[in-house]
Amino acid sequence: MSELNELYQQVILDHNKNPRNFREIENADRTAEGNNPLCGDQLKLYLRLNGEIIEDISFIGSGCAISKASASMMTQAVKGKSIKEAEKLFEEFHKMVTGKMDVEVEENHLGKLKVFAGVLEFPARVKCASLSWHTLRAALNNEKTASTE
């Protein structure tokens, strides 16, 4: 069951149980909703910007362990980063979970987010892992909703 252990690593289970930045932000500059209609996963993302910098970011919602942990870790990863850096991370994350980049070989800035590389073995779950990232991009593009359908 190595693939299962690869998917449900301790860090993912921990973020599922105790999601970070799991709250609303009053007076957020940007918000966006993400839906995965197939699963019923839904989350709402809040952003506070200071110029080009993501000063604060948070989310609320419900979903499976993968989508919740991914959202939690995404908020940690982009908090304090510039919009450009966040977009770069989105690209790298997307390449990783869709198998277009080997994170062990190619240079990247994913760091802890590499735990989601295991999702590749579970095609049905790629959308769960990327939902929060699509929602982030929607928020940055000033769109109100993102869907992984």
């Binding site: 449900y8 499976c64 779950r125």
Partner: peptide, 19 residues
């Protein structure tokens, strides 16, 4: 979440629906 149940059961060869 039912999806996590579904994924884990699948690894045991068990096909269920989650959703």
């Amino acid at each position: 979440h039912p999806h996590d149940i579904g994924t884990i059961l699948d690894k045991y060869g068990i096909a269920i629906r989650a959703g």
